[in-house]
Design a protein around this nucleic acid. Sequence first.
DNA 1: GTGGCTTCATAGTA
DNA 2: CTACTATGAAGCCA
Length: 657
Amino acid sequence: MQGGLGQNSNLPSGSIDKTRVLDVKPLRTLDPVFPNSARATTFDGACPTGFYSFFPFGASQGPQASPPKVPMPAPLRSFRSSDTGEATPAEFPVASNGENTDSHDRAAPNKSRSSKKKPKISQDLQIDVSSLLGIGKNEREDGNRELVNLLLMTFDALRRRIGQLEDSKELTLGLSKRADMRAGNILMSAGIRTNLRKRIGAVPGVEIGDIFFFRLELCIVGLHSQSMGGIDYTNMGGKNESDPLALAIVSSGKYNDNAEDSDILIYSGQGGDKGDDQKLERGNLALDRSLRQKTDVRVIRGMKDQMNSTSKVYIYDGLYKIQDSWVEKGKSGGGVFKYKLVRVPGQPRAFAAWKSIEKWKGGIASRTGLILADLSSGAEKIPVSLVNDFDDEKAPGYFTYLHSLRYSKSFIVSHPYDFCNCQKDCIPGDLNCSCIRRNEGDFPYTGNGILVSRKKLVYECGLSCQCSPNCKNRVSQTGLKYRMEVFKTKDRGWGLRSLDPIRAGTFICEYAGEVIDRARVRWNGNNDEYVFDTTRIYQPFKWNYEPKLLEEASSNDSSEDYDIPSPVIISAKNVGNVARFMNHSCSPNVFWQPVLYEENNQPVVHISFFALRHIPPLTELTYDYGAARSDSTVGHIAPRWKKKCLCASSKCRGSFG
DNA sequence: GTGGCTTCATAGTA
DNA sequence: CTACTATGAAGCCA
């Protein structure tokens, strides 16, 4: 595989300078990231991400099989130093269509940025671009569950990648660190969105209880199309042509919206923050008309994110009706409209369930079906509750709780072990850090500990590294961060879920247990249901923002394929942690990622689980167990258990094991 | 079509 | 931990 700019020549003719979309500035004019020696041994000649046109997930399933006529927006880090020499801005791909004439911006990076607004993508490009994702005009107007999930994952992958590049100072656009806005802008202006058609009531593909971490996510799936405004409304559909109607509101605590009853919301109108009276116009008028016409209003409730106190979680709480409105005197003296919204009965619990969880966690309310407050008996820093509110079974089979790996022999990997000498924390973009170099120059996690991309192997700092224990490159070593709960499922035995909302890309837990070898598996009789085995056949899936050409995407070599130095087999039959309770699903919400770090002078591969997408509280956590190999190349393991799959997903393969 | 205006955002800093 | 502020983008509206 060739790396770097060499691939530029493979681009379809007529490609535009995609850097313009993101205004990426070439900063990495450094020497090649890898010392040649390290590269030869560690990476088997695989090169870091080179120059690709945009090719997001799912496109290979799209109807069109021909290569893109027009490349997608902005491959991130479309610029990277080549192997052979130092790259200069002169090597930057040059716009080849007539649209982009202001290339002087790049040639003179010091020029003031404030003078020009960011150029928008042309309309033609928007259509071509979204067709790559399989988003036709119809899907842009009306969504479905699969599309909503795809868009949310696309947004988040892009946002994480932009954030990663910002963290490492490879991307400097303006002064703000708003990866969410930039990711949103790229997708929205390319038409990569859905439910654009305004509607009253439910939005296809979005379910009550769905959670979001950015307002732009609400825009992209069409749940609430204002990026900042609290009231989304339309002028269409009222009895009177000129009557606006409210569509959705976001309640996020700027005003005091709370009511005692979680099915009731007291919402304040907009405007009037300087002390003058609010006016019956815009959103306020729309809410008033919705009150009179008794139409449904979607309600999104924002709350502080417990994990990340500076950010918010938004939960879609379904439909409400406006029952009453009045004017109150606001804090700054002016009149403020108040609207009383009451939840339409018969909908699944969402916000109300969060409120219950808060009470359980605070010990205010007792939990029905609680068997054990802490299944881990203190082995985890955070208690793991054991609950059965389904039947009479009192406990899962006996095992010893262990929070990490137990191994009797070392599992040597094929490259020499090294530790980093960073003084305090390892700094993204610091290529003097040997741990960062091993991660292909990318810091694997964002500042708040979210995995940016799936990798064949993630290298974390180890015990011997000089950096502090708080170094951001130790995400999977710091134990559970969420309130986990082992619970009895309807039909799949015991399962695992979280009491906290989990953001896509966050570390959940590792697969703890005894590291064993193939012989031991056979000795156990091949019927150990608690074996994790990296050599099984796993369904490939896209999670990264990784622009690729079509031919590359269809090839077998993906950076998201697993490729671990040596097989890892872990049995959690006798000892293990919460991970042993995670059930299989053919469309899971969790994936595993091998993570290597040194302990006791041995590099050890751990199996870490990360959230594949945002996961609401009390949602069962599942991953894809993969399939046993039927050939004999990995030893005779044929007569093992196999189970009927009950995951109920539309992509269900019928069985697993 | 366009530019102004409003807005229950965010992240970073004090 | 809260307050403050700089930057920001979607969509309504004139």
